[in-house]
């Protein structure tokens, strides 16, 4: 009886062990299947930077056109024959020109594309600072002018209605203020 039970238990544990081992073996196989082949990774990397000529504004990697598919297979062949990423990109650039790159190159006339937005931003910022300075100065002028005048009709008309002498006074007051603040600092 006892011998029989042991035997049965032993057989059970062996089955469990085998199953567990099989499961362990299965794990890396599953994992390996999910890891992208290094060649394919490079194919994807290169072909994502090249523009499809048929369905424009789509990288050839995502395109379903025949031309794009054949370009991707040419990239694959070139990788397998040991060409560098840059050489492969240059191959297409030589044949299709700047057009083929989704991102323009950072050289020659293309530099304008890269620099112009930032230059524009800087210029705009500069203009804004100048404008704000002018508005603020206008406010101060008006403030100074208002103390020496009866209140005029509307803010926009103030400057025009103010007599020349008042403007000089305002200027003098402002100058005095500036000199004071200059001496303080």
């Amino acid at each position: 009886m006892l011998k029989c039970r042991l035997e049965r238990e032993g057989r059970g544990s062996v089955v469990w062990m085998v199953l567990t081992l099989l499961a362990l073996l299965a794990l890396p196989v599953e994992a390996a299947e999910r890891v992208e082949d290094p060649t394919e990774a490079r194919v994807r990397e290169i072909s994502s930077t090249l523009r499809c000529a048929v369905c424009q504004n789509q990288p050839i990697y995502e395109s379903n056109s025949d031309l794009a598919k054949d370009m991707v297979s040419i990239i694959r062949e070139k990788i397998q024959s040991g060409e560098s990423d840059e050489a492969i990109r240059a191959y297409f650039h030589d044949r299709y020109g700047d057009y083929i790159y989704l991102e323009p190159t950072k050289s020659g006339a293309n530099l304008i594309l890269w620099i112009a937005p930032f230059a524009g931003l800087l210029l705009g910022g500069f203009g804004l600072v100048v404008a704000i300075n002018r508005w603020r100065r206008g406010r101060i002028d008006e403030g100074v002018a208002a103390t020496g005048e009866e209140s005029p009709a509307s803010p926009s008309d103030r400057r025009a209605e103010r007599p020349a002498s008042a403007r000089d006074e305002a200027m003098e007051a402002r100058l005095r203020k500036e000199i004071e603040s200059f001496e303080e600092s």
């Binding site: 000529a53 048929v54 025949d66 031309l67 054949d70 370009m71 297979s73 040419i74 044949r95 299709y96 020109g97």
Partner: peptide, 13 residues
């Protein structure tokens, strides 16, 4: 058939 010459010559269509 695999448009190797075509791509080598920069053909679009």
């Amino acid at each position: 058939p695999k448009q190797k010459i075509a791509i080598d010559w920069g053909v679009y269509g």
